[in-house]
Amino acid sequence: MADETVLEAAGVSRVFDVSSPWLQRTLAREPHRLLRAVDDVSFTIPRGTTLALVGESGCGKSTIARMSVGLLAPSAGDILFEGQPLSAARAQPGLRRRMNMIFQDPYASLNPRWRVRDIVAEPIRAFAMAKSRAEIIERVGALLARVGLSAQDGEKYPHEFSGGQRQRVSIARALSSDPDFLVCDEPTSALDVSVQAQILNLMKDLQRRYGLTYLFISHNLAVVRHMADRLGVMYLGRIVELGPAEEIFRAPRHPYTRLLLDAIPDLAMIGRARAQVGGEVPSPIDPPPGCTFHPRCPLANARCRAEKPAVTLIGASQVACHAVAEGRTEP
């Protein structure tokens, strides 16, 4: 069972129509405008492991997260849960209850008018996972204990908790249908570092104890380093480097990964000047041709400006870069 794949994305893309309203478009003779939020992305997540996706705002992380639990359909490509197409898997309550999602904002994702015990019990009720009221109460108490809260906390409303406690409630709710696959979209980005440490430790403990599989999304490379077994680095809708996290941190290959690692402020950086990534992320509505990173890449040449790089396998990593494929170290 060790190498069994829980989730697989195969050539997944997602396009959003961001055109102006029809009338305005017709009057101004504007064409349809399409935004390719996710572009031909493939990955697998083995059971009991964490795949982390990092990238800057707007690069498509949340779009992948939502597609991975079936909240959003891909425009092209397939997502498979334990080998079955996600849509088919989600049609079976027995499989649907086994995947869940934790969101960035513990304030927005909890219904403020519900008591915590009802928030946590909702999936148990929805999937008819308990036979009696007493059993529900017992399960909710156990879930709250599992995330470091107490059964009495179930009587309270979300606003009575701090940010970190609210994120614990979200995790308890996400765990209440006994899932083995969790998609976590920036679960600690809204939290202070000391609270973040509590939540990250909790997530790791739960993974170890219950063999959970995570798709973990963050823009924070240090957090990702702490959590990830495997890592995907995203830029403008594509995964530009994918491989074992240790390998990528030790020997990043894609020019974007390298610049990103240099740019991150880190505790170890006292008094050190760091390299900078010039420029800004271009608009995904009108991405540059060829390799979309070429306007910012120190290694860009004519081929990069014309031709989209394919994925090359290097060691255990996949890298989408002409320079890496050609073994080139100059433009």
Binding site: S194, A197, N201, R225, H226, L261, A268
Partner: peptide, 23 residues
């Protein structure tokens, strides 16, 4: 001390972050 230990670093990986319980 607790605050510094709770911050993950890209330079090295620790199994568990230092944790200040409570809020």
């Amino acid at each position: 001390l607790g605050l510094m230990g709770s911050i993950p670093s890209i330079e090295h990986r620790v199994e568990r972050l230092a944790q200040i319980d409570g809020a």
